[in-house]
Amino acid sequence: MVNASEPSITPAQVRAARAWLNWNQDYLARKAGLSKTTLNRFEQGLSILNSETSGRLRKTLEEAGIQFQFRKMLATGISIVNLSSEP
């Protein structure tokens, strides 16, 4: 579940995180328990994720070593804390 006081991750942050991890949409969708269509539509900016889905996506990427960066609740990028050895 996403904490309402935390800013939401953005499609650009998710795309960047996937690129750093060298994960394709299929892999991330499976790991986060989402459909590829849901992830694809979010990354393209065609849909907004509900808080539960956003939370699962964020948690999956954070557990893989991604840290989302924000300034005053606005997304500014990502940083890599610790890359997992997964594909």
Rank of each mutant, 00 (worst) to 15 (best):
M1V: 10
V2P: 00
N3E: 09
A4D: 12
A4Q: 08
S5P: 00
S5W: 13
E6Y: 03
E6Q: 09
E6G: 02
P7F: 00
P7R: 00
S8C: 04
S8L: 10
S8Q: 09
S8W: 10
I9K: 08
T10N: 07
A12G: 14
A12Q: 14
A12E: 15
A12I: 06
A12V: 11
Q13W: 03
V14H: 10
V14Q: 15
V14I: 14
V14L: 14
V14K: 10
V14E: 15
R15K: 15
R15G: 12
A16M: 08
A16V: 03
A17R: 03
A17Y: 09
A17K: 03
A17G: 11
A17C: 12
R18V: 01
R18L: 13
L21Q: 10
N22C: 13
N22T: 14
W23N: 12
W23L: 13
N24C: 05
N24G: 12
N24S: 11
N24R: 04
Q25H: 06
D26C: 01
D26F: 02
D26V: 00
D26Y: 05
Y27K: 09
L28C: 06
L28M: 05
A29E: 06
A29Y: 00
R30Y: 06
R30E: 07
K31Y: 07
G33H: 14
G33E: 08
S35N: 02
K36G: 08
T37V: 12
T38A: 12
T38E: 08
L39R: 09
N40V: 01
R41H: 03
Q44Y: 05
Q44W: 01
L49K: 01
L49S: 06
N50Y: 01
N50S: 05
S51H: 02
T53F: 04
T53L: 03
T53H: 03
G55R: 03
L57F: 08
L57G: 02
L57P: 01
R58K: 14
K59G: 04
T60C: 14
L61H: 11
L61D: 06
L61G: 11
E62S: 14
E62L: 07
E62G: 12
E62R: 13
E63R: 15
E63W: 11
G65D: 11
G65N: 10
I66E: 08
Q67F: 01
Q67L: 05
Q67D: 09
F68W: 10
F68Y: 11
Q69A: 01
Q69Y: 00
Q69V: 02
R71A: 05
R71G: 00
R71C: 00
M73W: 11
L74Y: 05
L74S: 13
A75G: 02
A75D: 04
G77E: 03
G77P: 04
G77V: 05
I78L: 05
I80W: 09
I80Q: 13
V81Y: 02
N82P: 00
L83P: 07
L83G: 12
L83C: 06
L83H: 13
S85L: 09
S85Y: 04
S85E: 14
P87N: 06
P87M: 04
P87R: 10
